[in-house]
Amino acid sequence: STVKVRLGHLEVTLHNVSEEDVRELRELWKNGADEEDLRRWLEEWKK
């Protein structure tokens, strides 16, 4: 499914993403990950 995730002022649209992935991303964000960390996660996730 396609999910729009809003993290601060960063809005990311993920395609074919699982609930688990979204949860993981939100956890990262809650734990103080900055945009760099999130971008890195997204790069990994896209592979």
Results as ranks from 00 to 15, higher is better:
Arg26Leu: 13
Gly32Ala: 05
His15Phe: 14
Glu20Arg: 14
Arg23His: 11
Lys4Asp: 04
Glu44Lys: 13
Leu25Met: 04
Ser18Phe: 04
Glu27Lys: 10
Arg23Ala: 13
Trp41Leu: 03
Leu7Tyr: 07
His9Ser: 14
Glu27Gly: 04
Glu35Trp: 08
Leu42Ala: 03
Gly32Ser: 06
His9Glu: 15
Val3His: 03
Lys46Asn: 13
Thr13Trp: 08
Glu20Tyr: 09
Lys47Trp: 08
Leu14Phe: 04
Leu42Tyr: 14
Val12Glu: 03
Leu42Asp: 00
Glu44Gly: 05
Thr2Ser: 10
Val22Gln: 09
Leu28Cys: 04
Val5Lys: 00
Val3Trp: 03
Lys30Ser: 13
Glu35Asn: 05
Gly32Glu: 05
Asp21Met: 10
Thr13Val: 13
Glu36Lys: 11
Glu19Phe: 08
Gly32Val: 04
Lys47Phe: 11
Leu38Met: 06
Arg39Met: 13
Ser18Pro: 05
Glu44Ala: 14
Leu38Asn: 00
Ser18Glu: 04
Lys30Val: 12
Val22Pro: 00
His15Ala: 05
Glu19Ile: 10
Val12Ala: 03
Leu38Trp: 04
Leu38Cys: 02
Thr13Phe: 05
Val3Lys: 02
Val5Glu: 01
Lys47Ile: 12
Arg40Pro: 01
Arg6Gln: 15
Glu35Gly: 04
Asp37Asn: 08
Glu24Ala: 14
Arg23Lys: 12
His15Leu: 08
Val5Trp: 02
Trp41Gln: 01
Lys4Leu: 10
Arg26Val: 15
Trp29His: 09
Arg6Pro: 06
Arg26Cys: 08
Glu20Phe: 07
His15Pro: 02
Glu36Asn: 13
Gly32Asn: 11
Trp41Phe: 04
Arg39Ala: 10
Lys4Pro: 03
Lys4Thr: 15
Lys47Tyr: 08
Leu25Asp: 00
Asp21Gly: 10
Val22Thr: 04
Lys4Ser: 12
Ala33His: 06
Lys30Thr: 11
Val17Pro: 09
Asp37Trp: 05
His15Arg: 07
Asp21Ala: 13
Val22Asn: 02
Glu44Ser: 10
Gly8Arg: 02
Val12His: 04
Thr2Met: 07
Glu24Gly: 09
Trp41Tyr: 03
Ser1Met: 15
Gly8Lys: 03
Leu7Thr: 02
Arg26Ser: 11
Val17Arg: 01
Val22Asp: 02
Asn16Trp: 05
Arg6Phe: 14
Leu10Glu: 14
Lys30Asp: 13
Thr13Gly: 01
Asn31Lys: 11
His15Val: 09
Glu27Leu: 09
Glu24Ile: 12
Lys46Val: 14
Glu19Lys: 10
Ser1Leu: 15
Ser1Ile: 15
Glu27Phe: 06
Lys46Gln: 14
Lys47Thr: 11
Glu19His: 09
Gly32His: 08
Leu25Arg: 00
Leu25Lys: 00
Glu24Asp: 09
Ser1Thr: 14
His15Thr: 11
Gly32Met: 07
Leu38Asp: 00
Asp21Gln: 10
Ala33Phe: 07
Leu10Phe: 13
Leu10Ala: 05
Leu14Ser: 00
Glu35His: 07
Glu44Asn: 14
Trp29Tyr: 14
Glu35Met: 09
Arg26Phe: 13
Lys46Ser: 14
Val12Leu: 12
Glu11Asp: 07
Arg39Val: 11
Thr13Arg: 02
Glu19Asn: 09
Leu42Glu: 01
Glu11Ala: 05
Lys4Ile: 15
Trp45Pro: 02
Val5Asp: 01
Glu36Ser: 12
His9Ile: 11
Val5Ala: 01
Thr13Lys: 04
Lys47His: 11
Glu19Thr: 10
His15Met: 08
Leu25Gly: 00
Leu7Ser: 01
Glu35Ser: 07
Val12Met: 09
Asn31Thr: 11
Leu25Phe: 05
Asn31Met: 10
Arg23Leu: 12
Gly8Asp: 06
Asn16Ala: 04
Asp34Glu: 11
Ala33Asp: 03
Leu7Glu: 01
Ala33Asn: 05
Glu44Trp: 06
Glu19Tyr: 08
Glu36Gly: 12
Asp21Ile: 06
Val12Gly: 00
Lys30Met: 13
His9Arg: 12
Arg39Tyr: 11
Leu42Gln: 01
Gly8Asn: 06
Trp29Ile: 15
Leu38Phe: 09
Ala33Ser: 06
Gly32Leu: 06
Thr13Gln: 04
Leu42Gly: 00
Ser1Glu: 09
Thr13Asn: 03
Lys4Glu: 06
Lys47Gln: 12
Glu44Pro: 01
Lys47Pro: 08
Arg39Ile: 12
Trp41Asn: 00
Asp37Pro: 03
Glu19Arg: 09
Lys4Trp: 03
Arg23Val: 08
Asp34Leu: 10
Arg40Ser: 10
Gly8Val: 02
Leu7Phe: 14
Ser1Asp: 05
Leu14Lys: 00
Glu19Val: 10
Glu20Ile: 07
Arg6Leu: 15
Trp41Thr: 01
Gly32Trp: 03
Glu44Leu: 08
Glu36Asp: 13
His9Tyr: 09
Ser18Gln: 07
Glu27Asp: 11
Glu43Asp: 12
Asp37Tyr: 08
Val3Asp: 01
Ala33Ile: 08
Asp21Phe: 12
Glu24Thr: 12
Gly32Arg: 04
His9Ala: 14
Asp37Glu: 15
Lys4Ala: 06
Trp41Gly: 00
His9Pro: 08
Trp41Met: 02
Ser18His: 07
Arg39Ser: 07
Asp21Pro: 01
Leu14Trp: 01
Leu14Glu: 00
Leu38Val: 12
Val3Cys: 06
Val17Glu: 00
Arg26Trp: 13
Glu43Ala: 09
Val5Gly: 00
Leu42Cys: 05
Thr13Pro: 01
Lys46Phe: 15
Asp37Ala: 15
Val22His: 07
Ser1Gln: 14
Asp34Ala: 12
Val12Pro: 00
Thr13Ser: 04
Glu36Cys: 05
Glu36Pro: 06
Asp34Tyr: 06
Leu10Thr: 13
Arg23Pro: 01
Glu24Tyr: 11
Trp45Met: 06
Arg40Glu: 09
Asn16Tyr: 06
Asn31Ile: 05
His9Phe: 10
Val17Gln: 01
Lys46Pro: 05
Thr13His: 05
Arg40Val: 10
Val22Tyr: 13
Lys30Gln: 13
His15Tyr: 14
Lys46His: 15
Leu10Tyr: 13
Asn31His: 11
Lys30Glu: 13
Gly32Gln: 06
Arg39Glu: 07
Asp21Val: 08
Ser18Gly: 07
Ala33Pro: 07
Lys46Arg: 14
Gly8Pro: 05
Ser18Val: 04
Arg39Lys: 12
Glu36Trp: 05
Glu19Gly: 06
Leu28Lys: 04
Gly8His: 04
Glu27Trp: 08
Lys4Phe: 06
Glu11His: 09
Lys30Ile: 11
Glu36Phe: 07
Ala33Met: 11
Val22Ile: 14
Leu38Ile: 14
Arg23Met: 13
Glu44Asp: 12
Thr2Trp: 08
Glu19Pro: 14
Arg26Lys: 14
Lys4Tyr: 06
Gly8Phe: 03
Glu11Ser: 10
Trp45Asn: 04
Asn16His: 09
Lys4Gln: 10
Val17Ile: 09
Asn16Thr: 02
Leu14Val: 05
Glu35Phe: 08
Trp45Glu: 01
Gly8Trp: 02
His9Met: 12
Val3Ile: 13
Lys4Met: 08
Asp21Glu: 08
Val22Glu: 10
Trp29Cys: 06
Arg40Ala: 12
Ser18Ala: 06
Val17Ser: 03
Glu24Lys: 12
Leu25Cys: 01
His15Lys: 04
Val3Phe: 04
Leu38Arg: 01
Lys30Arg: 12
Leu25Thr: 00
His15Asn: 07
Glu43Lys: 07
Glu44Arg: 08
Lys47Arg: 10
Glu24Ser: 14
Val17Cys: 03
Val12Phe: 15
Glu43Gln: 09
Val12Tyr: 14
Asp34Ile: 09
Lys4Val: 15
Asn16Ser: 05
Leu10Pro: 00
Glu11Trp: 15
Lys46Gly: 12
Leu7Cys: 06
Arg6Met: 15
Asn31Ser: 13
Ser1Gly: 10
Leu7Gly: 01
Ser1Trp: 11
Trp41Glu: 00
Lys30Tyr: 11
Ser18Thr: 11
Leu14Ala: 01
Ser1Lys: 13
Val3Gln: 02
His15Cys: 04
Asp21Cys: 06
Trp29Phe: 15
Gly8Ile: 01
Val5Met: 10
Asp34Lys: 13
Leu28Trp: 07
Glu24Phe: 09
Asn16Ile: 02
Lys30Gly: 07
Asp34Trp: 04
Leu10Asn: 06
Leu28Asn: 02
Val5Cys: 03
Glu43Pro: 00
His15Ile: 09
Asp21Ser: 13
Glu27Pro: 00
Leu38His: 01
Glu27His: 07
His15Ser: 06
Lys4Gly: 03
Glu27Ile: 07
Asn16Val: 02
Leu28Pro: 00
Arg39Pro: 01
Asp34Thr: 15
Gly32Ile: 03
Trp29Lys: 07
Asp34Gln: 10
Leu28Gly: 01
Asp34Arg: 13
Glu11Lys: 03
Lys30Phe: 10
Val22Lys: 06
Glu11Asn: 08
His15Trp: 09
Lys46Met: 15
Val17Trp: 02
Val5Ser: 00
Trp41Pro: 00
Glu36Val: 10
Lys47Ala: 13
Ser18Leu: 07
Asn31Trp: 05
Trp45Cys: 02
Glu35Gln: 08
Trp29Val: 15
Leu25Glu: 00
Leu25Gln: 00
Val17Lys: 01
Leu42Ile: 15
Asp21Leu: 08
Asn16Glu: 04
Glu20Asp: 13
Glu11Ile: 15
Val12Arg: 01
Leu42Thr: 03
Leu25Ala: 01
Glu43Thr: 08
Arg39Gln: 09
Gly8Glu: 05
Asn16Gly: 11
Val17Thr: 02
Gly32Lys: 06
Ser1Cys: 13
Thr2Pro: 04
Leu28Arg: 04
Glu43Arg: 07
Asp34Met: 10
Glu36Arg: 09
Val22Phe: 11
Val5Ile: 15
Arg23Cys: 04
Leu10Met: 12
His15Glu: 10
Lys47Cys: 03
Glu20Trp: 08
Glu11Gly: 02
Arg26Gln: 14
Trp29Pro: 00
Arg26Asp: 10
Ser1Asn: 14
Trp45Asp: 01
Val12Lys: 01
Asp21Arg: 04
Val12Trp: 10
Arg6Val: 15
Arg6Lys: 15
Glu19Trp: 10
